[in-house]
Amino acid sequence: MKLKRRPRNPQSETIIALIDVVFFLLVFFMLIGRMDATAPFDVAPPQAQTGRDMPAGGITLAISQDGDLALDGTEITKTDLPAALASQLAQKPEMRLRINAHRDADLRHVLPQVSQAEALGFLDVVLVVTPERSVRGQP
């Protein structure tokens, strides 16, 4: 007996549904995701309940637990930092400096950077915090 294989339906309709789903996911991640210069080391910002929404813009100074520094994702020494900050400020005098310090970093690594930014002429210096209980890489 000869069995006839049933002809397959064209796949275009199922592919369109797949495209729809992928497209929605794509738009979702584009809207939700925050692309930012990440530090070359792990930084878990401190928690705070009274923090305000952080607007975009400005430069980010990351400070690791051991006091290592990174300006906009690039590691930098304490000696080179003032010149780098001054050149950024010269381009835009109202530049915001965001200090993203690790929650366990000693204040002797953090507060001098605030004072230095103030001395250089930064008028807008903010400390980055998170309202969340757990942070990536932390329990």
Binding site: R34, D53, V114, V125, V126, L127
Partner: peptide
């Protein structure tokens, strides 16, 4: 990045 970041003014 899915960190919910806020800020506290330092100056």
């Amino acid at each position: 990045t899915y960190l919910n970041l806020d800020m506290i003014p330092a100056l």
